[in-house]
Design a protein around this nucleic acid. Structure first.
Lengths: 107, 107
DNA sequence: AGAATACGTAAGTAATTACTTACATGTCAA
DNA sequence: TTGACATGTAAGTAATTACTTACGTATTCT
């Protein structure tokens, strides 16, 4: 269990606004202004948060005319899920047994 | 999906040392010195990290003579798991279907 | 009682974070 | 081409974080 891998990811999701941005992007990709419309902070602040998410690899950006569309890249949440999986058994043994069963299937 | 609930939890697990402390406590409860032995930082620094985990509800402390034993309280990772669950489908649809199936069972 | 142990807390500091406003750059539209 | 739009970047700042050393407080041991 390597807890130091992808440290930026845990930092990136530690801010409520950034989690909310990811939640927004679940619906599909969005331009910066569309994202910023959901927040009280200034648009540059939103840009900076998006930069953090981009650096963490949690989103990708695509230039699209004068817009920049941000798209969710949820694979990078993998380390979080992996780390969390070590704790699953504590709150839901039933679920855990099934998860391990699935892993066995995958082998 | 309330991304602002239990914000401390996401902050608490954002630091690699604190995740490593939780990982340690998976094995069972430990006194502070036993925990500190695994880190290069000073013991007070470890105490301060443990305080963050305590405030987040991720560990409990029990006075035991002159020791203080910290024990994992993994239920508080629930918000993290819940938030993450909205992304499961992106990397493992099969797993997601089974998760939803389990939820249906639970009703 | 007195010394050693186990720990928290205080206080100080350097680094980082989360903003802000002002500005620069590239794109589209009249 | 001129102006409006979409966005990143720079620079400054206040707040927070992650440490450090010094010290205080129980508890146990002799």
């Amino acid at each position: 269990m390597n807890t130091t891998s992808q440290p930026e990811v845990f930092g990136a999701i530690s801010h409520p606004a950034r989690r909310q941005m990811l939640d927004l992007l679940v619906e599909g990709d969005h331009a910066v202004n569309a994202i910023a419309g959901n927040f009280k902070m200034s648009r540059p602040a939103v840009s900076q948060h998006l930069r953090v998410l981009l650096d963490a690899g949690l989103v990708t950006e695509q230039r699209c005319g004068r817009e920049r569309r941000y798209r969710l890249a949820p694979e990078r949440l993998g380390p979080v899920r992996d780390w969390l999986s070590h704790y699953e058994r504590f709150w839901d043994d039933h679920f855990d047994r099934l998860a391990r069963h699935l892993n066995k299937d995958a082998e």
